[in-house]
Computed example of a mutant assay.
Amino acid sequence: MITVYGIPNCDTVKKARKWLDAQGLSYEFHDYKKAGVPAERLDGWLDRFGWETVINRRGMSWRRLPAEEREAMNAGRAREAALANPSLIKRPVVESGEQILIGFDADEWQETLA
């Protein structure tokens, strides 16, 4: 089973979901805004990929953080920040069995999921 974690109005999540639909792949969508971020999943992503990959440092949510907070970011602070503001997490995060993908890259997804 494929689980897509994200925010429904995010353009990248929309592209990713369209791609999955076009491939005929069924998936479950986990909406951060409605269901929050599952802390145990976030911990696994941070452990496996590091906060620098999990946190979207290009987005508006990151830029809105005070400079002191951005400069002092580490894994523990990233966890707290992401739980409080799921928009900080790079989207989408996709889990399929042991496979985890962060962000949308059609070529990588084709290789991993299709």
Rank of each mutant, 00 (worst) to 15 (best):
M1D: 13
M1N: 06
T3H: 05
I7T: 13
P8V: 09
P8R: 12
C10P: 00
C10A: 04
T12G: 05
T12M: 08
V13I: 10
A16S: 10
A16W: 00
K18R: 15
K18D: 15
W19V: 03
L20G: 00
L20M: 05
L20W: 00
D21L: 07
D21S: 10
A22Q: 13
A22V: 15
Q23I: 09
G24E: 02
S26C: 09
S26D: 15
S26L: 14
Y27Q: 08
E28K: 11
H30P: 00
D31K: 07
D31H: 06
D31T: 13
Y32W: 06
Y32D: 05
K33H: 06
K33Y: 05
K34W: 08
K34I: 11
A35R: 14
G36M: 12
G36E: 13
V37T: 15
P38M: 10
R41F: 14
R41C: 12
G44I: 09
G44F: 07
G44L: 09
L46C: 09
D47K: 07
R48E: 15
W51R: 10
E52S: 11
E52C: 08
T53L: 11
I55W: 08
N56I: 04
R57F: 02
R57T: 04
R57M: 04
R57Y: 02
R57Q: 04
R58P: 00
R58E: 00
R58M: 01
G59Q: 06
G59Y: 04
M60I: 11
M60H: 13
W62S: 10
L65S: 12
L65Y: 07
L65Q: 10
A67C: 06
A67Y: 10
A67H: 06
E68I: 10
R70F: 03
E71L: 14
A72H: 05
M73I: 12
N74T: 13
G76H: 09
R77F: 12
A78W: 08
A78M: 12
R79E: 01
R79Y: 02
E80R: 14
E80L: 14
A82W: 11
L83E: 01
A84Q: 12
P86R: 05
P86T: 13
P86S: 04
L88A: 03
K90W: 00
R91D: 04
R91S: 06
P92L: 08
P92T: 09
V93Q: 01
E95C: 12
E95N: 05
G97L: 11
E98R: 03
Q99M: 11
Q99V: 12
G103V: 12
F104M: 02
D105N: 05
D107Q: 14
E108H: 08
E108W: 05
E108A: 13
Q110N: 10
Q110P: 00
Q110M: 05
E111D: 12
L113Q: 03
